[in-house]
């Protein structure tokens, strides 16, 4: 291993900034966050970088390393031997300072997701096989890397049209809960905007918890929406039954 790493770290605030070069001594097994801490402790004490646990449990240290959305605490430096390591803040969210972005939009969306409303009081009788698929979604650490990489949010500023992958798995977690009694399909079809996702699976690729966001959450949720709003036989039956379609046309167009 080389004796030191060269890092280019984006420094600045909402008014602008630039990459600044730093040199950091190499240590066995070090991660990008270790290198940034070296900079913070010795070269630039006001370098802003979020972190809490340094164990990939909390999802605070999200940023973009050589262009890829990553957790800084889980990204090993030794994979970049001989290269410059460029660290930039998440692009999708407004800059506060350096590597710290304003992720408050996510917390606003979180309030829109109706909680579990159990059909019976706890203790629940549920089989492991019935909860396996939702437990996958419970591994989410809310690092928002999926939100960062989702091109509806990243390239098309679709924040007012789509909750983003994080909240699709949050909704799926409740929707697929064996004891849940709430109908979130209209929310998904309208405000949630599940139709905006065009299944490129970028979110799944960047998920540090390896949650199969697209396959296991978004696609099944899309199916629920399609089943409700687009099943021709059901539409026919509803009309024959004299009932009006109870909901307006959901958003359909995906961003390409």
């Amino acid at each position: 291993m080389s004796d030191e790493f060269k890092l280019m770290v984006w420094r600045g605030d909402a008014s602008g900034g630039a990459e600044v070069e730093y040199h950091v001594p190499a240590e066995t097994g070090m991660v990008v966050l270790d290198a940034l801490h070296y900079i913070e402790h010795n070269l630039a004490p006001d370098l802003a970088v979020r972190w809490n646990c340094k164990a990939a449990h909390c999802g605070s240290c999200s940023a973009e390393v050589n262009g890829e959305p990553k957790l800084l605490c889980k990204t090993r430096m030794d994979q970049y031997v001989g290269q410059t390591v460029t660290v930039r803040p998440m692009k999708t969210f407004p800059i506060i300072k350096d590597l710290v972005t304003d992720v408050s939009w996510n917390y606003k969306v979180a309030k829109e997701v109706p909680l579990l409303a159990p059909t019976a009081p706890a203790p629940f009788n549920m089989q492991q096989i019935d909860v396996d698929r939702i437990q996958e979604f419970h591994r989410c650490i809310e690092c928002f890397l999926c939100q960062d990489t989702c091109h509806v949010l990243r390239d098309h500023a679709g924040q007012n049209k789509y909750f983003g992958p994080r909240y699709m798995i949050k909704i799926a977690e409740f929707e697929m809960h064996p004891m849940d009694g709430v109908d979130r399909v209209p929310l998904l079809a309208h405000e949630g905007g599940v139709g905006m996702c065009n299944v490129t699976k970028c979110c799944t690729e960047v998920c540090p918890q390896h949650i199969r966001i697209t396959d296991n959450a978004i696609i099944p949720l899309k199916e629920r929406v399609a089943d409700r709003y687009y099943d021709p036989i059901k539409i026919l039956l509803r009309r024959l039954g004299g009932k009006k379609d109870d909901v307006s046309e959901p958003k359909t167009h995906a961003v390409t």
Partner: peptide, 18 residues
């Protein structure tokens, strides 16, 4: 149990309990 009713999903026993 309160946590379970608010959405926490614990691993289950073969009888379906926590």
């Amino acid at each position: 149990l309160e946590l379970e009713s608010w959405g926490a999903v614990f691993d289950r026993t073969p009888e379906g309990r926590i």
